[in-house]
Design a protein around this nucleic acid. Sequence first.
DNA 1: AACGATACCTGACTAAAGTCAGACATCATG
DNA 2: CATGATGTCTGACTTTAGTCAGGTATCGTT
Lengths: 290, 290
Amino acid sequence: MLDPVSRVRRFNRAVTSAVGALDSSFLGRGRPLGAARVLNAIGHGRSDVAEIRDYLGLDSGLMSRLLRSLEDEGLVETEAHQDDARRRVARLTRTGRREFAAYEALSNTQAEGLLAQHSQREALLAAMDLIASALTRERVALEEMDPRSEQARYCLGEYYAELGRRFKQGFDVSLSRDPDAKDMRRPRGCFIVAMSDTLPIGCVGLKGTDHGYAEIKRLWVAPAARGLRLGRRLMDAAERAARELGITLLRLDTNSALPEAAQLYRSMGWREIPRFNDDPYPDLFFEKRL
Amino acid sequence: MLDPVSRVRRFNRAVTSAVGALDSSFLGRGRPLGAARVLNAIGHGRSDVAEIRDYLGLDSGLMSRLLRSLEDEGLVETEAHQDDARRRVARLTRTGRREFAAYEALSNTQAEGLLAQHSQREALLAAMDLIASALTRERVALEEMDPRSEQARYCLGEYYAELGRRFKQGFDVSLSRDPDAKDMRRPRGCFIVAMSDTLPIGCVGLKGTDHGYAEIKRLWVAPAARGLRLGRRLMDAAERAARELGITLLRLDTNSALPEAAQLYRSMGWREIPRFNDDPYPDLFFEKRL
DNA sequence: AACGATACCTGACTAAAGTCAGACATCATG
DNA sequence: CATGATGTCTGACTTTAGTCAGGTATCGTT
């Protein structure tokens, strides 16, 4: 009853029946689940037939038939791929978009219903983020992105907010040496975002300088994704990118109010060095030779 | 990407694929899912055929056939119900128990695997409890139990631990007027536990006295179940039980370190009264006439 | 131009799930 | 003990999902 495994299994049971309920609400639109799934995959922007097949784990014969049935319903159109006439791309027709919107409405209603009956929304959402991150752990994709992209800006915003909470004196970006975006773009550096499904859950910046080293900046992992060794993965990716760019020396600064960060750096072979800049926030400085 | 509904839906996607993975591991035992589900329902103590059918949402014809196939495999035996020969009860044979244990092992392994890959087990489990409670909210059953039962003792233990965390001076049961179990049993009083699936998630005690009133004691709601208005349901149930027992006046004591409790009492028509006992912990006293 | 690889499609099949009407025994009730 | 209700079972059926072996058109490469 109270041991960890029972608790996980209680969660499984609860969630299985909730998932089943959503599936049956989908069936209410008079279309088998397989076809509904394909329609939704297309609606969510997956156009390549092979991509959809792969995503949904379907046999190519089955996929072909489901696509055909959606075409017969007038919901989907397919055409040959521009660069490769063997491949096919699918897109929704006007009717298809309407039908897709109806499925979206069902999903949204279900999600809203779940949230509405709970007076502690934020706690519930945080729990969902945590579990979704844990379940999709091996599917977290580290992607290089522009530091000005929506995803990167979201991560940075969360990062600054967390520093504000954890530093006694708060945190004001404008007082810190906010790295210029172009220093975190190739070929001077790069910016890496960890994406879990559609949600950014971590980031790290590699910032080029003109002083014979590059800096690691803005390492952040969403609270929901902590404990999954994502910080390590991000640092590894940043180091790999640095090597690719021919960088041989890395430095970073951090603050002793973030002990888990310093702990991570030490465990990954960084060594502490004296202060190398005059930023008011950091009080710990590290270096690593590649 | 970041709005609440998207977060819920990301959670849904993550959990759908995890559930699918468990289902396919079940298929690995060479039996269709339907039959496996019936076998597991029986293994978990559901013996009445109609009960299983209802629980799994099966058509009676389908149910009958699945049961037959399990019988043919030698995993299950059925016989007529003692009191009503129309009804049938199913139970596992020796082989059936072995097979059921194999499914249990699969489920446990999956649960352990999930926990193992996460370094913050307790946070993950708390998140699972929270979500399972939210999803099964309408299925929370308030059950009268003996205050010495395993479930009741678990609730009380959690309750004392929480008081210890929330009172500045800590909490020591032996210093408090720990109610005698027989005062919280009919006909003097009762003890009600809120069960979500197999997990106790809240409790309340109604304690009879010889002073012309009864007391509400030990109102507790598991952190994972807060925000679901369970405290209110428990209080309602306790008042109902009091009315049944012919009690016309209720009293309770609480502490101002638990502001949400005082808030609940006030909103349910309790009024503050002067101290009516010498327990060292409470500093707020309430009364309600039924 | 010829080759194997690839992307998708079709036909033929099976397994699983689910539906429905009716049969049968048993029960509660007057 | 007749009657209608209940719980289970059987037979006949449909739908959905999934598999597999070719088949066709196209691609990249030599």
